[in-house]
Nucleic acid binder design. Structure first.
Lengths: 217, 217
DNA sequence: CTCAGTGCTGTGCAAATGCACAGTATCCAA
DNA sequence: TTGGATACTGTGCATTTGCACAGCACTGAG
């Protein structure tokens, strides 16, 4: 759920406080910083907890745990991208939904970002609904690679990422699902370029790994 | 300055508390854990502060900052275990083949170690040969869980870990592959115990996630 | 033998703290 | 127009918590 500006300010304050002192602020500390009542601080914390940003431990002084830490060392972390509105560069670090502490160099070649798979179109490649796939940023791919394909809907202006196996013959590109129940997506690059607009298809990168969390179904 | 065993215990407790809850323990929490007086806890904290292990923020509830984190860069890493010779505790941190920089808390519940899958017996669960599965350490499992089963070969004395779906009816345990080409492994717990030796079967933990690296085949 | 350090019990207190309850005002969507 | 979410003020209370002071027992160094 989206945060209000005030809530975001308070979350940032809590993160900075913890980074500087090693323990979370109390309600009073938050209230003092922003110049309002202790109970107002409490309600902000409850709101942040409702929205899943923090976790509160009842009756414990300073019982705050920040769940999604935006700060900290980004060195061994990977950004997770969802589908974002047109224009916005899909894989710009500042548009990350979340940063996960996974060393990008564990993948080979190195992963640049993660993408959440939705749907079961790649089950036969061992890629399930909800899995996070590691993507190495590159604009070309070899036949047989599984790629993160970036598709632009020219009418709505929305970009979306899909994971498919890539196959190209001349100017004809096929995006093939690893599930017999799904038909391939066919793209004619010649036609695509002739449109003289933004290309409707581009390669965001190739899949270099996968991360799955949770008990299996 | 060197720590006493008691002080080391308390420091470790504080580190674990923070890792699990995101904020430090109070004097009372420490006292309760070790079964002594709140003031005894306070004096231990003062001693740890004198010795430079922690920093105390006066008058602040839970005002503890751990300065030298003994777990160090290991905080966001996971050990990978292979199959090890008999006797050696399979999942003791010092027996790790490798440490991978993946935040254990990304898994739910938290992963304690990774295990490399060999073979294609779990393909239908989206688990491929060479995948690393995250395992949460626990000695019991629910029916349907995918578990890391620890099997001991009594003749050779070798222990090995296999990943299988767990199903138990009374004293009869079935370890089921997710691939029709493999037959389930059947274990009779009654017979197992009657052997009056080390149990041939135990649950090392339950699968809580998966990590795969490399371009798909 | 003495003294410092460790490792506790026990009591008491003031301040810090979480939390419940009662209001007020604004905005926005149904 | 009503209801819910946001964003506060203000009061009061029971606990939690840090902290101080008074002891006791043990150990190891000088």
């Amino acid at each position: 759920m989206a945060l209000t500006t005030r809530q975001f300010e308070i979350l940032t304050f809590i993160q900075e406080w913890i980074r500087e002192r090693g323990f979370p602020p109390s309600h009073g500390d938050v209230a003092e910083r922003f110049g309002f009542n202790r109970n107002a601080a409490r309600e902000h914390l409850l709101a942040l907890a409702r929205k899943g940003e923090i976790e509160l431990s009842p009756n414990d002084a300073r019982g705050i745990r920040v769940l999604k830490d935006a700060s900290g060392p980004r060195q061994f972390e990977l950004p997770l991208f969802g589908n974002i509105a047109a224009g916005a560069p899909l894989t710009a670090p500042e548009n990350a939904q979340e940063w996960l502490r996974i060393d990008p160099d564990l993948f080979r070649p190195r992963a640049d970002f993660l993408h959440r798979v939705s749907g079961d179109s790649m089950v036969d490649a061992g890629i399930l609904d909800g899995d996070l796939v590691g993507i190495h940023h590159q604009s070309e791919a070899a036949n047989g690679d599984i790629i993160a394909a970036c598709l632009l809907d020219r009418r709505t202006g929305y970009e979306s990422i899909t994971l498919k196996r890539y196959r190209r013959r001349g100017r004809q590109v096929s995006l093939i699902a690893e599930n017999p129940r799904y038909a391939p997506i066919e793209i004619d690059l010649a036609k695509d370029e002739a449109a003289q607009e933004l290309p409707a298809f581009r390669i965001a990168g190739v899949m270099v790994g996968l991360f799955r969390t949770g008990r299996p179904k």
